[in-house]
């Protein structure tokens, strides 16, 4: 296995764009005065003629992206998740979603791990918002290698895609020599039949560490990395429901509207089992170092392990 690296998925995203752009001259990148933060600046330096700063005007940026896509380009439009999906929600719905245009929207600084900027910038609603747009694909990669492959898959797919990016540098855990990404297909990271943990994005590695610690305590939990929230992988969820009888979801997002509800909708309709949601429990975040906030919100290894233990004792 290649050596793991510690890097924020926003950085991986910027690198992935540059790699893709070498082969595809239809890629253009838009940002809304956050290129240094979303890491589209990596692309901007390499391909200045294909980078367009839209200024602090996210609604217009999404509309411009729609027009570029309608004219045959493949635009990646990046901002903070809060503004790309919140401020510009209606532009995403009407100018991108309704005409099903080939626009890729990147929302950086998602979740509470934004840290010190506090609640106004800690977007825990982006997945919920994007889930409501018909035809929108939602990708939430968990580490560097997954992000690289997710960006390639987003480009190869013809239609609107939302990609969630994190600010915090995180350890990679996937093996790039033995990894494949397919939109809509969850990845089983650990086998087990006592309970299934389904995690997404930045907290997958924390969940992995928690599940491994539980194995040592005799609890055999299955762990699924659900990098695609929409379309959700129904087969892997139903199989897990049948084989383990209980599901716990983990996400750095409001428990309303996110991964947990997407999973619960599948089980409720196809094979009802209890589904417990670990996430941000319908509250706003606040300022502080990201690592401390993840601990406070129970979204680090220890917090996830503790909650899994509480749940399986019920």
């Amino acid at each position: 296995m290649a050596e793991g690296i510690k890097i924020a998925t926003r950085e991986s995203f910027g690198q992935a764009l540059c790699e893709l752009a070498k082969e595809h001259d239809d890629i253009v990148v838009l940002d809304a005065d956050l290129a240094a933060a979303t890491k589209t600046e990596i692309f901007k330096k390499a391909y200045p003629e294909r980078f367009f700063d839209c200024g602090i005007a996210e609604g217009n940026m999404i509309g411009v992206a729609a027009g570029l896509a309608a004219a045959g380009k493949v635009p990646f439009a990046a901002s903070f998740a809060m503004f790309a999906t919140g401020r510009a929600y209606e532009q995403v719905r009407n100018s991108v979603g309704y005409p099903h245009l080939n626009v890729k929207i990147a929302g950086s600084h998602a979740g509470i791990s934004v840290g010190e900027d506090g609640a106004t910038h800690q977007c825990c609603e982006d997945i919920a918002l994007m889930r409501t747009v018909p035809g929108m694909v939602i990708l939430n990669p968990a580490d560097h290698y997954e992000m690289i492959e997710a960006v390639k898959a987003a480009y190869a797919y013809n239609g609107p895609v939302y990609i969630r990016l994190g600010r915090l540098a995180i350890d990679s855990f996937n093996d790039p020599d033995n990894y494949s990404f397919e939109i809509g297909k969850g990845i089983t990271l650990e086998e087990g039949n006592d309970v299934t943990v389904i995690a997404t994005g930045l907290v997958v590695y924390e969940a992995l560490k928690a599940v491994r610690a539980l194995k040592e305590k005799g609890i055999n939990a299955r762990l699924i990395n659900m990098h695609t929230i929409k379309p959700i992988d129904k087969d892997i969820i139903i199989k897990a429901a049948k084989e383990t009888g209980k599901i716990i979801t983990v996400e750095e997002h409001n428990i309303i509207g996110g991964l947990g509800e997407a999973v619960a909708a599948v089980t409720a309709e196809s094979y009802p089992v209890p589904v417990y949601r670990i996430g941000v429990e319908d509250i706003f975040g606040h300022s502080g170092p990201a690592i401390e906030l993840l601990a406070e919100f129970g979204l680090n290894k220890d917090g996830i392990e503790r909650k899994i233990l509480e749940i399986i004792k019920k």
């Binding site: 217009n60 509309g63 411009v64 027009g67 570029l68 309608a70 004219a71 380009k73 100018s95 005409p99």
Partner: peptide, 19 residues
């Protein structure tokens, strides 16, 4: 271009012109 939500068409037109 699909349109109807006011203010959005002009942005899309900008994208087309840029393309």
């Amino acid at each position: 271009m699909s349109s109807g939500s006011l203010g959005q068409g002009i942005s899309a037109a900008c994208g087309m012109a840029l393309s």
